[in-house]
């Protein structure tokens, strides 16, 4: 197709209404670098951009957000779901065993009625004990699953830290105590090639109950949240955080004391600072 003919198809392209062959032909033409058509596409794209806004806003059900936030923790969700299936299978097996036992007794003669009553009584008592044990085992299983999840997460966390230390690209940034904590110090081990970093703090006093220490990455004059961290009884803190390719232009790291949970931008005094 010629340029003029392709140009006429741009409105339908931006609307997503071209047939496959026409779409491919236009995209080849755009890739070949036709400035006029590229400009027309950019102009015409404004139409479908805003057409979407002709529909009314409609709040989704509250449970949808919970569903999405649960999904972004896949490992935990998977293990929890597996644990539920195991418990279901145990319950089903127990139920079948009880059914089978009942069926056996249904064909017994009247002469055995008394014995039956006695056995049923004993069986019920046994069954109650078994159910109680089963519940305890279920709780134990759930507890163990939680422990496994925690250990897996911890292991993954430690492995990521080790990867940072082992990277050839790792940069060491020293942080010095300042303001209210001149005795404190810290190090950031930063692997800019893989966009991961580990932060260690030393000799920081414990944060008040309503506050957290928060680490910041400084890019130009802009502080970027790198997460809050806790301090142990020895004044040590450790945290692992991810960076993004734009962070490769970072110029410094700093620590401030902020309200519990941290803030998007720092508000408190600087406790540690180190330039790259």
């Amino acid at each position: 197709m010629e340029h003029e003919e392709l140009k006429l198809s741009i409105p339908a392209y931006c609307l997503g209404a071209l047939d496959e062959a026409e779409r491919q032909a236009l995209e080849r033409h755009l890739k070949d670098g036709c400035d006029e058509c590229q400009r027309l596409v950019m102009e015409m794209l404004a139409v479908p951009n805003v057409l979407s806004f002709a529909s009314e806003a409609h709040p989704p059900p509250r449970k949808l957000k919970e569903r999405i936030l649960t999904q972004i923790q896949p490992a935990k969700a998977r293990v929890a779901s597996a644990a539920e299936k195991v418990v279901d299978r145990i319950e089903e097996a127990t139920y079948r065993a009880l059914q089978k036992s009942r069926r056996r007794w249904m064909g017994a003669s009247a002469a055995l009625a008394f014995a039956l009553v006695v056995v049923v009584f004993l069986f019920s008592r046994e069954s109650a004990i078994l159910k109680k044990n089963l519940k305890a085992l279920e709780s134990q299983l759930q507890f163990n699953e939680q422990v496994v999840i925690q250990l897996q997460m911890e292991l993954e966390h430690r492995q990521q830290m080790i990867n940072v230390f082992q990277s050839d690209a790792v940069k060491l940034v020293d942080l010095k105590g300042t303001g209210p904590t001149p005795q404190a110090s810290g190090n950031v081990y930063w692997d800019p090639e893989n966009d991961k970093a580990v932060f260690c703090a030393f000799d920081l006093p414990p944060a008040p109950a309503d506050k957290d220490y928060q680490l910041w990455m400084i890019r130009g004059s802009e502080p970027i949240d790198a997460g809050v961290f806790s301090i142990d009884a020895q004044g040590k803190g450790l945290s692992f955080f991810k960076t993004i390719p734009e962070d490769r232009e970072l110029s410094a790291f700093a620590v401030t004391l902020e309200p519990k949970g941290g803030l998007p931008k720092p508000s408190g005094a600087i406790h540690l600072i180190g330039t790259i």
Partner: peptide, 20 residues
């Protein structure tokens, strides 16, 4: 990582994507 408890409305969409 804790959830920042102030000024969430003032954070731009682009920043939210960076944080994601």
């Amino acid at each position: 990582m804790g959830k920042p408890n102030l000024d969430i409305e003032s954070v731009s969409d682009v920043t939210l994507f960076q944080e994601m």
